[in-house]
Amino acid sequence: MISDNMKYVRDAEGYIVQPADWDENFARKLAAEEGLELDDNYWSILCFMRGYWQQNNVAPDVRHVTRHLVEAHGYDKKKAKQHLFELFPYGYVKQACKVAGMQRPRAWSTG
């Protein structure tokens, strides 16, 4: 495990180990590693994901995020997903979840 100033402990693939340790600085730092520049589009998604995590202690599914985009920004459903994958071109699990400080999702490892 890699530790940054003892503050954010991350797993071998760079995901945060304790989602509660996440803050906006962490997000910026992670985004930079992924080559992403965080603007309002990103923050809307990240805030939603953080809120969902606060409530449920699990990472939201992609469909929850797209629903948020539909409701908060008036996208249609297809557009919302397209928008999300434009912002995170390597995918939701690899990038969005990482930047939003979710533990590495394992639900899809196999099966």
């Binding site: 402990v9 797993d11 180990v17 202690n57 990472a59 533990q103 999702p105 394992r106 639900a107």
Partner: peptide, 9 residues
């Protein structure tokens, strides 16, 4: 467990 698993899932 705590460091790896999303327990509710």
């Amino acid at each position: 467990v705590a460091n790896i698993c999303e327990r509710p899932s």
